[in-house]
């Protein structure tokens, strides 16, 4: 079957503003949007720029807007997008560099601001810091994040105010706040209770809809708000 792919193109060296370009690609219904982009880049226009790495939904490199929704190109099948033209655009809310590539620096600055690593100054035990299956299950959902930025760039609060840390940063803070081995929950909660922390979230749920890993993001943000209000990490 022949598929029309309409891509928002932008070349900073030649274009004043982004414009759409449509390509016709021979594809199977089981092809992924990433396959279509590879075919376009390989056989039609080598200047098309997009990020990709593992191509199996783990590295989080190829998040983009496909038919208006943030998705991973490597997890989106042609047959799931209906019969019409497939529209592919870069993520919103981050500076556009070229074609489907956006500047991820602001996203990772917010991510780093919440201390997304284990903090524990207590002397380590002989073998390892033990954790029961129940304690591990408490934050299991938020360990699934692949930092693709689909959630943060789907958030209207982030679109309108780039200083908001965004859902992905809160998800990664949640992953350590509720980890029984970690000792920096209070510091992370302090960071997230500021003007650009969790209270910029107005439970719009775009993040939860956009997450390719199906993380219950709005729920996780709610749990962080509750932890700030009660001090309880249960």
């Amino acid at each position: 079957m022949e598929v029309k792919v309409k891509i928002l193109r932008f070349n900073p060296e030649a274009d004043k503003r982004p414009h759409y370009q449509t390509f016709c690609v021979d594809a199977e219904p089981t092809d992924r949007v990433l396959d279509l982009l590879e075919k376009i880049k390989g056989y039609q226009d080598g200047s098309l720029a997009f990020r990709r790495s593992c191509a199996h939904g783990i590295c989080g490199s190829d998040a983009m807007r496909i038919n208006g929704m943030n998705r991973l190109a490597c997890k989106t099948l042609v047959k799931d997008l209906g019969r019409g033209t497939i529209v592919v655009e870069p993520l919103l809310g981050l500076p556009l560099i070229k074609d489907l590539i956006v500047d991820m620096d602001p996203f990772f600055e917010h991510y780093e601001s919440v201390m997304p690593y284990l903090v524990n100054d207590e002397p380590p035990p002989l073998k390892e810091r033990l954790q029961s299956p129940e304690e591990r299950a408490r934050f299991d959902d938020t360990t699934k994040c692949i930092l693709c930025a689909a959630c943060t760039t789907a958030c209207p609060s982030f679109w309108s105010n780039g200083r908001y840390v965004g859902p992905a940063a809160i998800v990664n803070a949640h992953r350590f706040i509720f980890d029984s081995r970690d000792r920096a929950a209070a510091e992370r909660l302090r960071i997230l209770s500021n003007q650009f922390g969790v209270y910029r979230c107005h439970t719009i749920f775009n993040c939860t809809l956009a997450c390719p890993r199906e993380i219950q993001i709005t729920k996780a943000i709610g749990e962080v708000k509750k932890a700030i209000a009660t001090g309880s990490l249960e």
Binding site: L189, S193, S232
Partner: peptide, 19 residues
């Protein structure tokens, strides 16, 4: 599972208005 609590962060304006 042990009960885990942390001292609440000092009340920020955002937290007060959220409450």
């Amino acid at each position: 599972m042990r009960n885990r609590t942390v001292p609440q962060p000092s009340m920020s304006f955002e937290y007060i208005m959220w409450m």
